[in-house]
Structures are given as structure tokens and as C-alpha cells.
Write a protein that binds this DNA or RNA. Structure first.
Lengths: 335, 335
DNA sequence: GTGAAAGCGCTAACAC
DNA sequence: GTGTTAGCGCTTTCAC
């Protein structure tokens, strides 16, 4: 039924150890023996058992990935970049969604700890609570944080320039004369969000404007969340004439809310969105965005992880990738 | 360093077997012994080793998923539905992208066979070549095909009503007087694509129109592929006044091509797209689409797989999920 | 109810 | 070069 290395050895008339060496490509094997073993394996349709191998080698050739939601194009693109890099080295991705819920993230980490992934990539829900992640250090299993940092956690982290991107977005709106800029945000527990908010505030202060906390509208990191958060700002009598949305799912919701209220971009509401997506160029008007190198983010994370898996024991490294303001037609003058 | 069940047993002053029974929740254990074991495990921070467990139990609690590209929102949504269902039963997804390349798909299947996934979900690249999938039957590892069938492969398959959806799309265009309908398609090797093309042709014939093969423009299943395939049709002197795009990535490309050529929807080109995406409602005009229940597709696949994993040995089942034409504003009269 | 012991399929000393 | 053998951490008979 299932062909083991013993069956191969028997057929090739060598010992199990020799068969293992021939198949595993290590140690000394005469070429005659090697040929016999490989042929026997071929004939029997031998498949090495990765579980048995993992038990003895301590490596599963598997990498855990925990993101908020793989349906989110941002995470999907990053996951793809990561997969491309690690698959070249024979690793496979184990995927889990946290739904931006700390408890779910903890459970996923737990599953991956017992599944014995060789390494772990997480876009952590919380920038503050890293208890469950510290446990991983004890396992001394490489961990790389993707897109978000965790306070006090000294591990490899690949981020984008969130504050700088937000600053550019706000300055763009300021240049049009907007001084009341509404923000559609998810929880600032998320470190990238916190950084974007910081960039927003700093840009305002630098322009001599004191940020109004009432202009930051928070909701879950979903389309519905973006819709409601945007709506809350737009139905106010003193509604802001400019909106800055902090992530792509929420941008879609915000655009829908603007439409539903019969408002027009950019005449009634100027809009800048964080994160570039295909459709932002397809709508009318095309939307001005802060673009981030998403696939590169995933690849950079993968490279870092592979380096660790190869034994790199250097100090934790923090990488920042550049963001870029792409000006299109969704911003007009404040009236 | 690493805490094993032996350490727990020693601390609880019972045998390894008793510790295993207490921890595993099987066999007879006195409640006193159980308490002692659980407490010892707690104190030592014991984590069961899933690899060792898998070696002996033959189950890794892991499910392999192979899709064309996780970045494609269609696959991402299906993956999410699948993950939600199987995670409830303690399974984790192992993910691989085939890029709609048969050789890559074969390699992924191979990896998953040696990784010993408990089950496999594939959106197969080819409806015709199923050699590598037949090998899985021999392993008697459950396999469920998602969104696409393979000729001659008697395994559980969950599909959507592609032909019916395409028919509805074409009939909608016919009703506007279009009799030359261009198709932006990926390879008809893909079974869902083949079915959509079949529905397209049948609807035409039923209306007394002989399908013109020259109106079917084929490209890779990407945005760029959609762009080029659409462009090829639209630059013809006798360009079709209506376009039917067969998948979501290609729809985005086609819309871009239409724009770039300075054409307007629906005045110059009517458009119906297969697969509903958020942005199709955000563009102007909103696009008429054939919607498919994507998340449900993933969930249905998950349920089927779980049933098999629980031991269901019934005959292979083929499920079809309904598709729905959602009429918006991207179709106008032929002129 | 509990313990001893035999593997699961493989890797890797170590002896020859 | 090759074979023997001892585990990796766990589940699971089978005695007691």
C-alpha cells in the first residue's frame, strides 16, 4: 500500500541506511547502489514521508502566515509575494485569518506552534499586546512581523513608511485649502494605523492646525466599517470637505457612502486613500492614493525569514519601504 | 528545553501512557491521575508535538489548497469560505498558487502529497489532464475540485452554473439588439471557461446566430491578459459593439482597454462581466454582471471535504451553485 | 485504571 | 562504502 524506504531498500537489495543516503543525497553511496536505489524507488512509486522526516529533522518546511483577512487585496498581494519567495526554497505557507481579533490571532499562533511551522509571519492585530508573540521567541522559531510593529518586541519587522505617506496625503489636501480633514480609520491598536494617524496629525500641526479628534471616525477594517465611519462624518452639519481613508477596504466603503449621500468627488468631498488598488483608477474620478509596495513587502518579509532559517543570528532588523503619493483627480479646492 | 509528554508524566508521577491518555482524552484514566497530568502539563508549559502525533495517527490536520492565484479576489473569497469551515474542525490550510500553469499545479500536488495533507482542494488548471490528480485517488486522500471539473475524474466537485450564467449574460445583450458579441476569455482548457463559452454559443444559436470564432479573444487570466484580449477586439474596424468578459481580473483589464481607446460604456461598447466585484458597482456606469456565490462555493467545498474526512464513502457528488445576472447600466442598444 | 513496550518512517551516529 | 541501530514524540495494544 504505502511504500516506505524499507521497501525501496529491500528491492534494491541494500540496507535501509544506504537507501536513505541515496535518496537523501548525503553521505557516501557507490554509484551502483545509488542507481539501484533510485530505480527501485521509481518502480515502487516511492514518496518520502515528510512527517517522519520532520519528526527527526525538526523541520516541517512550512511557514505560518497570519493576516487580518486574506480577502483583503492588501494581504492577498503581500501573501503572494511571500509565497513566491519562500516556495523557491521549498517552503509552503500555512494560512490563518485573524479578522483583526486578538483572541483569534492567539489561537492561530497556538495552532502554528503545535503544528511546528519552521517560521512565522504575522501582521499583528495589536501594536501593544505581544505576549503570545514573545512565547515564540522562547521556541526560538523565527518570526517576522509584516506591515505592523509590536511595541517592545525585538524581532525582524518590515514596514512601510506610514507616517510619511499620511503626511504626503494630508499636505496634498492642505495645498487645496482644506483645513478640516476627516479621517476614516480602523482601530489605532493596529500599528500601521497608529502611524498613519500620527503622520496626519503631524502634518496638520506643521501647518499650524490643531487636529480635531472629532474628525477621526473609527470603524472595523471592512467595507461596511468604512461606509459607516465615512457616513458618520458626512452627515454632520459641519461635515468635512475632505476625507482621508486609511486602508483599502474602508476606502471602498467610504466611496459608496459618498455616493449614497449624493455627494460628488471632488466638488463636495475631496478624497485621498491609503493603499493603491486597481479600481481606484477605474472609478470616476480616479482617486488620489498613497501607494505602497505590497508585493515587495511580502517578498522582503520572505527574504528576512529565509535568512533566519538559514541561521542568521544577527540583531533584529527593521525595514521601511517607501510609500508614494499618486495624484489623480479626487481632490479639489475647499469651497 | 522542549517539554515532551515524558516530562509531564515524570512530573505527574505516572507512566507516559497514562499521561498520553489524560492529555489525549482517550482510554481510562482516574480523575486523580488526570488532574495531576493536566496540572503538570500546565506547569511545564507542555505543547503537544503535532508532527509526532501525525506520524503515528496518520493525520496532519492540514488541508492543501491549490488555486490559480490567491491575489485573484475570486479565489481569495473562496479560500476564505473554505478556511472558515475547516478551521472549525481544527484543520489548517496549506496554500499554493498554480498561476494556471499545469506544471506548477503538478508540483504543488506533489508537495502536498509528501507533506501528507489530510485532504486536498484544487481549482484545476486543466479540465482534460488529470493524471496527477488520479494519483491522489490511489493515496485515498480526499480530493474536492473547486469551481472546475476534470473530465473523467470521479471526485467531489463543486461548481457554479457557468453555462446558465453565460446564457443569461448573452441573452441580456441580445435583447439590446447586439448580434456580434465579443468575448474576452482565458484558456478554454479551464473547465469553467469552457462552460461559459458553451453557454455563450448556445445562447447565440438559440437566437439564430451562428457564433463567430473570431469574436472570442483569448489571453492569460490576468489584468494584462484582459487588456490585450479586449484591445484586440476593439481595434478591429468591424469591432463588436458588445463585450462579455469571462472573469474578474480580465474584466478590469478590459475596462481599462475600453477607456484607453477613448470608447464609452455603454454607448460605444456594451459590457457584461462574469463575477461580481465591489468595484463593478463603483465605476461609472456600474457594470452588469453575472454574480456567483463565491464564499458559499468555498464553504460547500469545505463541507464536502469534511464529510469525506469523517469517513463518508458515498459516490462522488457534483454540486452546482446558482449564478445570477445583476443588471446595472453597462449595456445599451446596439447602434 | 495503569504501565511496559512496540512501533509510525525516517535520519544519523557508529562500527565494520 | 555500507549496515546496524538508536532514537525523534507520540499512540496504542496488551498484560497486569
Amino acid at each position: 500500500m504505502v511504500v516506505t524506504i524499507r521497501d525501496v531498500a529491500a528491492r534494491a537489495e541494500v540496507s535501509q541506511a544506504t537507501a536513505a543516503r541515496a535518496l537523501g543525497g548525503y553521505g557516501y553511496v557507490s554509484s551502483a547502489a545509488r542507481r539501484a536505489v533510485l530505480q527501485a524507488a521509481e518502480e515502487l512509486g516511492y514518496r518520502p514521508n515528510a512527517v517522519a522526516k520532520a519528526l527527526v529533522s525538526g523541520s516541517t518546511r512550512t511557514i505560518g502566515l497570519i493576516v487580518g483577512d486574506i480577502e483583503n487585496p492588501f494581504f492577498a498581494a503581500a501573501a503572494r509575494g511571500l509565497a513566491d519567495v519562500v516556495e523557491d526554497e521549498g517552503y509552503t505557507l500555512l494560512l490563518a485569518n485573524s479578522d483583526e481579533d486578538l483572541e483569534r490571532e492567539r489561537r492561530a499562533v497556538d495552532v502554528f506552534r503545535t503544528q511546528l511551522v519552521d517560521g512565522l509571519v504575522i501582521a499583528p492585530v495589536s501594536g501593544n499586546d505581544g505576549h503570545h508573540l514573545r512565547l515564540l521567541e522562547a521556541d526560538r522559531r523565527p518570526l517576522v512581523l509584516m506591515d505592523r510593529a509590536v511595541r517592545g518586541l525585538q524581532v525582524d519587522t518590515v514596514l512601510v513608511d506610514n507616517a510619511g505617506g499620511a503626511r504626503k496625503a494630508v499636505e496634498h489636501l492642505l495645498a487645496f485649502g482644506h483645513d478640516r480633514i476627516g479621517v476614516v480609520s480602523d482601530a489605532d491598536e493596529i500599528s500601521s494605523t497608529a502611524e498613519r494617524l500620527r503622520g496626519y496629525r503631524r502634518a496638520l500641526r506643521d501647518a499650524g492646525i490643531e487636529p480635531d479628534p472629532g474628525l477621526v471616525s473609527v470603524g472595523p477594517s471592512t467595507r461596511a466599517g468604512g461606509y459607516e465611519a465615512a457616513r458618520a462624518l458626512l452627515v454632520r452639519v459641519d461635515r468635512p470637505r475632505a476625507l482621508f481613508t486609511l486602508n483599502n477596504f474602508m476606502t471602498a466603503g467610504a466611496v459608496r457612502a459618498i455616493r449614497d449621500l449624493g455627494l460628488r468627488i471632488p466638488d463636495d468631498v475631496a478624497l485621498v486613500a491609503f493603499d493603491e488598488l486597481e479600481w481606484t483608477t477605474l472609478v470616476d474620478p480616479p482617486i488620489t492614493v498613497v501607494a505602497q509596495p505590497v508585493a515587495e513587502l511580502g517578498r522582503a518579509v520572505g527574504s528576512r525569514l529565509l535568512a533566519r532559517l538559514r541561521g542568521d543570528a544577527g540583531p533584529a532588523r527593521r525595514t521601511r519601504l517607501r510609500t508614494e503619493l499618486i495624484v489623480r483627480a479626487s481632490c479639489g479646492p475647499a469651497r
